[in-house]
């Protein structure tokens, strides 16, 4: 059992992702939650790079950390929510929520740890299916119809956001 640099990077990124996700859930201040979630997204992008999926890594950083999270920050700051005003929920409800999530995790792990694909290996740091050349060719030949439909989805989302957000 020799430890390679990829193993070290994998465990480091996983610990960063889980720690930032936990801090995101437990932070009282919503602005800190957004920043921790951005840290989680960067760790997940690191995982994508480790899996040689460079296109998705860059898109994850641009779309999630760049666009979506900035939108969240704008909304939080425009609504002046960046103070710790969240009323405390009943402590038992919090314990029950954590217990329910923990039970779900336990059951999923127990069910999947003997799965048939257990022996399989996700090839790290090799293969070119995640490069933009291959993905672009696939996206504009086989998946060109869903790609065009997604532009209609964006148009309807834009119209919906304007209509909902408009003052009466």
């Amino acid at each position: 059992m020799n430890i390679t640099i990829i193993d070290i990077l994998w465990w480091f990124l996983s610990v960063v992702a889980i720690f930032s996700a936990l801090m995101m859930v437990t932070s009282k201040n919503p602005v800190y939650s957004v920043l921790w979630l951005i840290a989680t997204f960067f760790a997940i992008s690191g995982h994508y790079i480790l899996l040689n999926a460079q296109f998705l890594a860059i898109v994850n950083i641009i779309v999630y950390a760049g666009a979506i999270m900035v939108l969240f920050l704008f909304v939080i700051m425009l609504m002046n929510l960046n103070k710790e005003t969240e009323p405390q929920k009943n402590r038992w409800l919090k314990i029950a929520g954590a217990l329910a999530g923990g039970c779900l995790m336990l059951i999923l792990v127990a069910a999947l740890k003997d799965a048939a694909a257990k022996e399989q290996v996700a090839s790290v740091n090799q293969g070119n299916i995640g490069l933009i050349k291959n993905l672009g060719k696939e996206l504009f030949t086989t998946y060109v119809v869903p790609f065009e439909i997604s532009s209609v989805l964006f148009l309807s989302a834009m119209v919906g956001a304007v209509v909902i957000g408009k003052k009466e």
Partner: peptide
């Protein structure tokens, strides 16, 4: 990560 998200939604 998914379970942490579930716990966040519930709590």
């Amino acid at each position: 990560l998914f379970s942490i998200g579930i716990v966040g939604v519930l709590t």
